[in-house]
């Protein structure tokens, strides 16, 4: 019961934030939500199913570009929500089909294959006429006042994140979710228990792809202009993974917590150290991996005693 009260309070707070803060903070909150969507979507394939995708940015970039194409006045001129939905569906299908061959690969090979696909897609987008190559694409301007547009993107991102979390929650209660976790724990055993692992893995990957594409859609419409280099940047994938890990992979709210924490830390650091903040991002990654690979969620879950020995446990277990 306590859990639901906390969630209800969180929900109410997130609904009134836009009416209390300025546009700068709201934009910052929207960025957190977009990253939270991506980190939570990565969590489905990387956290629950155990396949560490290193190329999820391909769905982000593809979602952004598909939305730009669907909305473009010269091409299709569709409404934003319809464009967003179709971008998601196309990316889900793409993920499913791509998943069939590459989800047979294990460990590093899967990670490299997804990375390769993301890089190949970037190179393709850089060379196609419809995406206007390296010069980038403009999206139609949003037909709202400046204040209203900030609120619009905030609520769209919030809505997508809530839907994603609800769907993840439902999946975890059904056979599908148990199948994902079984695959993560022992794929051969899952197979022999009658789980169609190929199908389950592909479904997991396509759900992940669907929501990452929605994040790309929102990003593209918010920016109004997209280019291949930033939307297919491998650093975006790394950010998703780092946020998911930092919050706690394989937990429902972990990625959200991770996204908020990492974004706030980077924001504060870049205020104080304009040039060196990327250096600190690297340092945070290294420290996190060494001392707390289970994430913040695990620290605050109250299940374990937190002390010096908690932070050294990882090293004690995995050093050589």
């Amino acid at each position: 019961m306590k859990k639901y009260t906390a969630l209800a309070i969180l929900f109410i707070i997130s609904c009134i934030i836009p009416y209390l803060t300025g546009n700068y903070t709201l934009r910052f909150a929207t960025d957190i939500l977009i990253f939270a969507i991506m980190a939570s979507a990565w969590n489905i394939i990387g956290g629950y199913t155990g396949y560490a995708s290193f190329g999820n940015v391909v769905f982000f970039g593809l979602g952004a570009y598909l939305t730009a194409i669907f909305m473009s006045e010269d091409l299709m001129h569709l409404n934003f929500f319809i464009s967003m939905f179709f971008s998601g569906v196309i990316c889900a299908i793409f993920a499913f089909l791509m998943g069939l061959p590459i989800l047979r690969l294990k460990g590093h090979y899967f990670a490299i294959a997804t990375l390769g696909i993301a890089e190949a897609m970037k190179a393709l987008v850089q060379n196609l006429d419809i995406t206007e190559g390296n010069s980038g694409m403009y999206l139609p301007m949003i037909n709202l006042s400046i204040d209203a547009s900030y609120k619009f993107f905030y609520f769209v991102a919030l809505g997508v994140l809530i839907i994603l979390l609800i769907i993840t929650y439902i999946i975890l209660k059904t056979k599908l979710g148990y199948g994902f976790i079984a695959i993560r724990e022992d794929e051969d055993a899952a197979n022999s228990m009658g789980i169609n692992t190929t199908l389950f893995k592909s479904i997991s990957f396509s759900i992940s792809g669907f929501f990452t594409a929605l994040a790309g859609s929102i990003y593209a419409y918010q920016q109004g202009f997209i280019k291949p280099e930033p939307v297919f940047d491998v650093l975006v994938t790394v950010k998703m993974i780092v946020m998911a890990v930092f919050g706690g992979i394989g937990s429902l709210f972990g990625p959200l917590i991770g996204a908020a924490t990492i974004q706030i830390i980077s924001e504060v650091l870049s205020d104080y150290f304009l040039v060196a903040h990327a250096l600190f991002f690297g340092t945070i990654i290294i420290l996190m991996i060494l001392f707390s690979p289970k994430g913040i969620y695990d620290i605050f879950s109250g299940r374990k005693k937190i002390g010096m020995s908690y932070f050294l446990e990882n090293i004690r277990k995995h050093r050589i």
């Binding site: 560490a52 990670a111 990654i285 995995h318 050589i320």
Partner: peptide, 23 residues
């Protein structure tokens, strides 16, 4: 220190090192 952890742990770790060196 973490060489025997899951594979993506070392993957992200070396990425952290890369970001550090590059910057």
């Amino acid at each position: 220190l973490v060489i025997r952890a899951e594979i993506f742990i070392t993957l992200i770790l070396t990425f952290g090192i890369e970001i550090f060196i590059n910057n």
